[in-house]
Design a binder for these strands. Structure first.
Lengths: 140, 140
DNA sequence: CGGGGAATATTAGCCAGGCTAAGTTAGTTG
DNA sequence: CAACTAACTTAGCCTGGCTAATATTCCCCG
């Protein structure tokens, strides 16, 4: 019963639910919601336009507008424009935003590292082997 | 660099983000939100009390109250009581709720099954091996 | 017993984060 | 140059979290 796709699907579904709850707990109480953290992460390489951000986060444009508004109010990003097209607006990290991103990322990695440290070497190896497979899911 | 917990943590973190987005897409447009689906799933074996449901879903009691209110309005669950303790209230699936749960679950499993069918046997085996490890994360 | 604290739920009011619809401003094109 | 399209923003609604404030009911101890 473990190698048929349908049976496996049920197990995967159940594990995914568990991981979602885990992530929720990991994020609770941090100074950034996971969505805000995600957006900041997208800005790390440099300024991005609103439409790009919305697409990358699988979200409608108005939703991203509001997110950026909040981040701007918090002083973590600033808005800019494109000299070649006055319709487009860009968001860019402020220094404070970059620092905040760094700190939150460090906290998350530390948290996960702790979880992983509780596993055996074998378990970590098994997990590492499966990551590329998980990453493939949904790429179709 | 692949077997130190910290490096692994970064990879896991990234894959988790991907999976969260995948789940979001899977759920979009279905006749039940993932939270409602989750609650209905908890009711499948039989009536449950509010506190139990809240704990199981890692949510405060008032949040669960509201969820059940909505499901009740939708005709998918009914409330009951405990003859032995008049303080407790229980939620139970209606026939319609049971049918809805069945349909949504089938759709989700079908979707995941499709994803999994696109993998090779080896990849499925790798994934299956890693599921118990993933399930262990956060149990500490 | 009976009165007070603990347990169980609910309601109310707040916020984040989705959505669609409608409005604005700037390019593009016939 | 008028009309369409593209890029955003604003407004208004919903779900789903939270805490604080009630109600009820149970239970224990004096």
């Amino acid at each position: 019963m473990r190698d048929d796709p349908a049976g496996l699907a049920e197990q995967v579904s159940s594990v995914l639910r568990h991981l979602v709850l885990l992530l929720r707990r990991t994020v609770a109480g941090q100074p950034l919601t996971s969505q805000q953290y995600g957006v900041l992460g997208s800005l790390e390489p440099g300024p991005r336009r609103m439409t790009e951000l919305a697409e990358e986060h699988a979200v409608q444009l108005p939703t991203m507008t509001v997110q950026i508004n909040r981040l701007e109010d918090a002083g973590l990003v600033t808005r800019g424009g494109d000299p070649a097209d006055a319709r487009v607006r860009t968001a860019r990290l402020t220094d404070e935003g970059r620092e905040r991103l760094r700190a939150v990322r460090a906290a998350r990695i530390a948290h996960l590292t702790e979880e992983l440290a509780a596993l055996t070497d074998d378990e970590r190896a098994t997990l590492a082997a499966a990551l590329p497979v998980l990453a493939k899911l949904g790429r179709s």
